[in-house]
Nucleic acid binder design. Sequence first.
DNA 1: TATCATATACTACACCGTGTAGTATAGTAT
DNA 2: ATACTATACTACACGGTGTAGTATATGATA
Lengths: 204, 204
Amino acid sequence: MNDTSPRRSKCDQIVEAACKLFLESGYETTSMDAIATEANVSKRTVYSYFENKEVLFGAIMKSMCDNTGCTHPDTLDPNLSLKEALKEFARNMVGLTQTPEQRDVFRVVLAEGIKFPELGKTFWDSGPELAKQILAAYLTEQISRGVLAIEDPEVAAMQFIGMVKWPHSMPELFGIKGNTTPADRQRALDQAISIFTEGTRAKS
Amino acid sequence: MNDTSPRRSKCDQIVEAACKLFLESGYETTSMDAIATEANVSKRTVYSYFENKEVLFGAIMKSMCDNTGCTHPDTLDPNLSLKEALKEFARNMVGLTQTPEQRDVFRVVLAEGIKFPELGKTFWDSGPELAKQILAAYLTEQISRGVLAIEDPEVAAMQFIGMVKWPHSMPELFGIKGNTTPADRQRALDQAISIFTEGTRAKS
DNA sequence: TATCATATACTACACCGTGTAGTATAGTAT
DNA sequence: ATACTATACTACACGGTGTAGTATATGATA
């Protein structure tokens, strides 16, 4: 009767509440009572859908990890110029990982990595590793065409990703509120791409 | 009587034990009883040195953050070549942040960042920010000498750091045990420096 | 079609065992 | 006298369970 949103299944309500609270406060600090309350559901109902707290947490986090990767286009556009293709890729990557939700997933996965080791692998494979594979494939292609000259394209892919992500994802992760404008980020991105392409271009 | 090491002050014993346990298990999971036991000290003694758990945790983490930065040389060696100076800097940086202890500090600061927001700032300022400042100063110098051409040296410093650190610090953070050898890391570092210097060198 | 029976999903709430922050106290060593 | 230990204790929160009772849907029966 008191459903805030109409016709949402109990399970969905629980998942949604658990997502919110776990991402906000992590595993230990979030209580099952709090989840039940937040979900407008009795505690018993929570336990009728999820065996225990660990199972609930694992299910929630795994699904969030899976949702991260799937929006990645699985190749770089071969019709664009090198710089444009990289820029598009970087923009996409930053866009995905820039959201507060993704930042929280990152943080929680890292934080609970000792208690839930398989979670780290799940996140890694569906996030950074996936992005690396996609970019490395593109770089390898460009190498074989003689456009680029790179010794180890897989490592180079990681280096590119680090270069693009580190400067603004790290401060955000630590709660440093930089006063960077979108224009700043745009220029930082252009600079990264400039350095990377100039630094890897095959010498003619 | 049962002191493992001779003549260690009680306070030191407590600090050492708390360091170990907090880094291993984070804030919530570590109990004050466990700290007292690990320190070979009674619980009351812990409370005679530290007002409560939060204070103890804050003090421990702050001192660990401070200890991170201070081992950084505060300039890049101007007598070395560009590549050698950068390589030295990178090696030093990787060496500092590669230790298991530093990885754990990183992880815990991130994990407890919501409950202890000022901790993030402390860590940032004494770690990444400091490294950035040092590198940016060097880059600026090289720009003014006409060796390098970079639009924004501060951003470039962060990009260089991200490039060097991301490929091996991220997997490690997520518990991905790559089978990288020291030789692999050496080659990755060389490649990063090659890309960065080629990508930022002033066109003659 | 109206009424009743049954099954199922859920709630509200008390309850248990356990773990933990923090305190109080009595005793011991120097 | 001081610094510390050992230990018992308080107060409370949490994970998880058991239970009595309600709401709702479905289907059979008359």
